[in-house]
Amino acid sequence: MKKTNLYNYILELADNCLIAGQRLGELCGHGPSLETDIACTNISLDLFGQTRSYFQYAADIKGEDATEDSIAFLRFEREYKNVLLVEQPNRDFAYTLARQYLFDVYHLLLLEKLQFSQDLTLSAIAKKSIKEVSYHVRFTGDWIKRLGDGTEESHAKMQEAIDGLWTYTNELFEVTEEAKTLAEEGIAVDVSTLKKTYYEKVTALLTEATLTIPESKYFQKGGKAGIHTEHMGYLLADMQYMQRAYPNMKW
């Protein structure tokens, strides 16, 4: 395959959307209110829409018989490149929103840079996605404030979620080899440059939400290299079930 770096980089971008969308999709019909249910489903739909744009592009690059679905459903766990953050389960609504918020802030910063990519397809996907993700970050940010500065119970739950997920934030800014090479060509975003702004933004919002910024200096990583948490296998077992049980069929 030509453009292996680009192909892998697209997966790195798209797998975050795919897995975050899958996690939110689990909650459809089970939200704490109809309005939040609809909003979370909306975010999930946006993320799957972005996933499809990326994977269609990746399938073109890969050639052979690759399709958006073969890329989405027929890889092994070690081949998924999403960060550990987005695969974390929906323990409760605070976890779900905290996970999504911590990803959304990063996602928007990334897309704001990616829209200037020399790769015109990536640039176009980024431009379209910015509008959607600006809404995501506003929605989840507002809920972090509501839950952080709501009741004692909600504050405790949100603090627990932030404390639990904080360890996965640093991986967002790890630069893979592919991304490094492509960043030099003006195609990829050097995500390490987003780190400072990210923590400033997150710190400001968490502080406004009366939450405490975790002090831990210990972080987990591995997703970008395909080494996932134990939750990932179950997520994939669900997601891939039909494609694995009934191979080579059209749906």
């Binding site: 939200g31 704490p32 209110s33 939040t36 609504f93 509501r146 839950l147 709501g150 909600s154 739950k157």
Partner: peptide
Amino acid sequence: KGTWVRDAA
């Protein structure tokens, strides 16, 4: 399960 969320809002 959503009670605490609605109360917080």
